[in-house]
Design a protein around this nucleic acid. Structure first.
Length: 338
DNA sequence: TTGGAGTCAATAGG
DNA sequence: CCTATTGACTCCAA
């Protein structure tokens, strides 16, 4: 059992400090890790990869090996401590200087309207959460898609899970989103649908019988979208408290989705009066598959198959250890088996 | 170039 | 405060 973590900080400082400071001028490239002042000399532990604080020099691996279980809480704590002690924690992501990168949104309006307060990404509802810290362009405001936009994107997905660039462009302009946002959304949505399907299959025992796809796959795979609507429809929750989303019957069939989206209706008016345009473009008398997705989420992930879960954890831990060791400047992370 | 997988991080809700 | 959700991002393979 782990000892009290209280003393950990100091101890780790000692050992780590020693580790780096030791061979004066060993300044190999590994100087990545700014080590703290070795406040006081202490017993060095040359062999130990990453002296784990609070455990009298036990490395994370050793610590893990000692315990019969993977105590992820303790492990995580240790990892965090090591990171902190190496000044590796709290680092912003690698390219947090998003202000420059402004990514793949080539399609968008010209004018490098970035500048963090620049283009108010207007649009219906979907607001950028820009609490607008006067901080000079450090963070990019997070885009939050409005429910209508999500619905529209989902419907588009029903028509075409893999939209062409042109379609993406159209979607973006109709929803008044950046193309990169639409692209990201499709990536994420596909990925998450896939994952849910996977989890679902695991849950229903093994099998992975093709039939399993029927229910849920309607989410993604059907390109015609028709029967998918049918299947899901039964279960739909029917919330959607938007008075605006008046059922507005027919509208549903835009023959071939995507492109037609532009075609029908008041596309002309799309410039303004977003709500109306959207309603007719992507009108949805029903809020289709919201339900299935969330159901999957809620039911999923419980009932873990122990062995596989354990394997996953072990693999993950291995990965963490590997990266820690790398970060700490250890040339050759030594093998560890679970 | 594109898509998948994995991850980060902002936000919302309990 | 913790967890879930989700948009954005990175890396890699095809």
């Amino acid at each position: 059992a782990p000892e009290s973590p209280l003393s950990s900080a100091e101890e780790s400082v000692k050992s780590l400090g020693e580790q780096g400071g030791g061979g004066g001028g060993c300044g190999g490239g590994s100087s990545q890790v700014p080590l703290r002042e070795p406040s006081e000399p202490s017993e060095s532990q040359p062999g130990t990869p990453l002296p784990v604080p609070g455990h009298s020099g036990l490395s994370i691996q050793e610590m893990v090996a000692m315990s019969p279980e993977l105590d992820t809480y303790v492990i995580t704590k240790k990892v965090k401590e090591v990171l902190t002690d190496n000044n590796l924690a709290y680092m912003k992501r690698r390219h947090s200087s998003v202000s420059e990168s402004q990514t793949a949104d080539s399609g968008g309006l010209s004018g490098g309207d970035f500048s963090q307060g620049g283009s108010p990404q207007h649009g219906l509802g979907h607001h950028l959460h820009q609490q607008q810290p006067p901080q000079q362009h450090l963070k990019k405001a997070r885009v939050v898609l409005a429910p209508e936009e999500k619905e529209a994107l989902k419907r588009a997905y029903q028509q075409k899970p893999y939209p062409s660039p042109k379609t993406i462009e159209e979607l973006a302009s109709q929803l008044n989103l950046k193309t990169s946002t639409v692209i990201n959304w499709f990536h994420n949505y596909r990925s998450r649908i896939r994952r849910e399907l996977f989890i679902e299959e695991i849950q229903r025992g093994e099998g992975g019988s093709p039939s399993t796809r029927a229910g849920k796959a309607s989410e993604g795979d059907s390109c015609d979208g028709t029967e998918s609507d049918g299947t899901v429809e039964g279960t739909r929750p029917g919330h959607e408290h938007h008075p605006a989303s008046e059922g507005e019957g027919g509208s549903d069939h835009r023959d071939d989705g995507t492109t037609s989206a532009t075609g029908s209706n008041a596309a002309g008016t799309s410039g303004h009066h977003k709500g109306g345009a959207l309603d007719s473009l992507f009108s949805f008398p029903e809020s289709t598959h919201v339900s299935s997705a969330s159901v999957a989420t809620t039911t999923a992930a419980r009932n873990p198959r122990d062995s596989s879960l354990r394997k996953k954890k072990a693999a993950n831990l291995n990965n963490i250890i590997h990266r820690l060791e790398k970060a700490a400047g250890k040339d050759e992370p030594h093998e560890w088996e679970f």
